[in-house]
C-alpha cells in the first residue's frame, strides 16, 4: 500500500486513504487521500467551509469517518481514540488554544511530559518534584521561548504566548508527527515570523501537517501543499505547482497570489 522507500521518496508517517464523511446530504470529506512524509511540512489549505476542520477531526480521532482509513507509521488507527493516537505519536495543536487555564505554564508542559511518559496513576510524589518530567517540560518551554514565564498562570498569558505554549506542550510529547491547526492565527507579524522560523527547523524532528490561512507562511514553509475544496483534495504538489494550478486559482487563491507564477499543470506528483 505504501510507496516504496528509496532515496527520493521518504516513507509516509501519517497516511489518509479514501476518507469519506457525510453529515446527511452534505459530504464534508469526499474520498480524501493524502500523506505526510518524514522531514516535510505538508500544508493543507482551502477556503472556509472546505472541510478542513472535519478532516482534522477525523485524523485526530474526534470524529469517525464513514469510510477510509488513517494510518500512523503504517499502523491503522482509524478506530482509535484521540488519546490512543496521541500515545502512538500524533501530537496536535488547536485552532483555538486549548490549555488548562488555571494551571501554571510549567504545569501545562509537565502535563504533556506526563502524557508522553504514560504513568499517570502516581499518588504520592509531587509531579513538579520529578526531575525527568520538569526537565522535559522546561526544554520544550525553552524551545518556544517561554522559559521565563514558567511560573505564570496560563490564564495570564497573552494570546500569542498561549499559542507558543500549545506548541511547547506538543513538543513535550516527542511525537512522530505534528498536526497543527492554524498555529499562526491571531499572532502579530513578528510573532508569526518567529513561529515560522521555529516550524522551519521543527520539520526535521517530526513532519508537520499544517492547516494555515496565512498564505505567505504556507508558501514559505511548505514542502508540499494540498488544496481542499468542497470536501475534495483538488491538488497536491509543491508551492510552485499549486500557484500555477488553474483549478486552485479559480477555487481559492486571489489574483495577487497567482501573479508572477507560471502556468504549470495541476500537480499530483511527489516533490
Amino acid at each position: 500500500m505504501t510507496e516504496p522507500v528509496n532515496g527520493s521518496v521518504r516513507a509516509p508517517v501519517l497516511e489518509v486513504r479514501g476518507l469519506t464523511k457525510a453529515f446527511g446530504a452534505l459530504v464534508a470529506s469526499k474520498d480524501i487521500s493524502l500523506d505526510l512524509r518524514a522531514g516535510e511540512i505538508h500544508a493543507l489549505i482551502g477556503p472556509n467551509g472546505a472541510g478542513k476542520s472535519t478532516l482534522i477531526a477525523q485524523i485526530a480521532g474526534e470524529l469517525m469517518p464513514d469510510r477510509g482509513e488513517v494510518r500512523l507509521d503504517g499502523q491503522e488507527v482509524t478506530g482509535w481514540s484521540t488519546a490512543a493516537r496521541t500515545r502512538a505519536g500524533l501530537a496536535r495543536t488547536f485552532q483555538i488554544s486549548s490549555l488548562a487555564m488555571e494551571m501554571t505554564v510549567l504545569q501545562n508542559a509537565v502535563l504533556g511530559a506526563l502524557g508522553a511518559r504514560g504513568k499517570v496513576m502516581r499518588f504520592f510524589a509531587p509531579a513538579l518534584g520529578d526531575r525527568a518530567l520538569v526537565e522535559r517540560a522546561m526544554a520544550a518551554l525553552e524551545a518556544v521561548g517561554l522559559q521565563d514565564l514558567a511560573a505564570l498562570r496560563t490564564a495570564e498569558l497573552s494570546h500569542g504566548q498561549r499559542r507558543q505554549l500549545e506548541v511547547a506542550v506538543a513538543l513535550t510529547l516527542a511525537p512522530r508527527a505534528f498536526l497543527m491547526d492554524e498555529p499562526m492565527a491571531g499572532l502579530s507579524a513578528s510573532g508569526s515570523r518567529r513561529l515560522m522560523s521555529f516550524l522551519d527547523g521543527l520539520r526535521e524532528r517530526a513532519p508537520i501537517l499544517l492547516i494555515e490561512h496565512d498564505m505567505d507562511a504556507v508558501f514559505a514553509l511548505a514542502d508540499r501543499i494540498s488544496v481542499l475544496v468542497n470536501g475534495e483534495v483538488i491538488a497536491t504538489g509543491s508551492a510552485a505547482r499549486i500557484r500555477g494550478d488553474a483549478r486552485v486559482q479559480e477555487a481559492y487563491l486571489g489574483e495577487e497570489a497567482c501573479a508572477g507564477a507560471g502556468g504549470e499543470g495541476r500537480g499530483e506528483a511527489a516533490p
Binding site: 509537565v110 510524589a125 509531579a127
Partner: peptide
C-alpha cells in the same frame, strides 16, 4: 500535587487538552 492530581485537575479544566496529551 502528584501526577494523578495534576491530570485529574486537567480533566476538570480542559478535557480536550488532557486527551491531546494522550491521557
Amino acid at each position: 500535587r502528584a501526577p494523578f492530581g495534576l491530570a485529574l485537575s486537567a480533566a476538570r479544566q480542559n478535557e480536550t487538552r488532557l486527551r491531546a496529551v494522550g491521557i
